[in-house]
């Protein structure tokens, strides 16, 4: 089946098998490396991308479902060589250790402050329920989300 998607501002058209998962489409067909496969059961969130402005788990979605959609992955966050405030915050606050969960974690974190510019710590932690990090204990990630929210508010 032929699908057309807009990924990180570029248009792509491919013939794909209906069963091709969006994560595999992004990684194997489009050639991205940011979204990761961590659990396959829709729990870890390493595969999180934005679909028409909403964070979704691309391992639990078929590529054909994204036909015509706007997709933003971690690779699409920086603009003109300038990191997104959330990326910058993850860097400053040491929100990444092994980095595997990081792209999905940043996409989920971005959704939190897109929807709620001034989240409480509890709101941040609940907003990250769909993302698992095994390295950081989440504290520096929570700090990063707070810092990004603060930076955006300035």
């Amino acid at each position: 089946m032929n699908i057309t998607t807009h990924i990180n501002g570029k248009s792509y058209s491919h013939d794909v098998e209906p069963r091709l998962l969006l994560i595999h489409y992004l990684r194997e067909v489009v050639g991205l490396t940011g979204p990761h496969i961590g659990c396959e059961t829709s729990l870890c969130g390493a595969c999180t991308v934005e679909l028409n402005g909403k964070a979704v788990k691309s391992c639990t979605m078929f590529a054909v479902q994204a036909d015509g959609a706007n997709v933003v992955t971690i690779e699409g966050l920086a603009s003109n060589g300038k990191l997104h405030a959330m990326q910058e915050a993850f860097w400053n606050e040491h929100g990444a250790q092994c980095g595997f969960c990081t792209p999905g974690m940043i996409m989920a974190s971005k959704q939190i402050i897109d929807r709620n510019p001034n989240p409480t710590e509890e709101e941040i932690r609940h907003g990250l329920e769909g993302n698992i990090c095994r390295c950081t204990g989440y504290q520096h990630i929570v700090n990063a989300v707070k810092a990004a929210a603060k930076a955006a508010g300035v």
Binding site: S42, G45, T48, L51, K54, A55, V56, K57, T60, M61, A108, Q111, I112, G127, E129, G130, N131
Partner: peptide
Amino acid sequence: IGDVQVRNM
């Protein structure tokens, strides 16, 4: 229900 991403889809 679930988490943010699950609720979005």
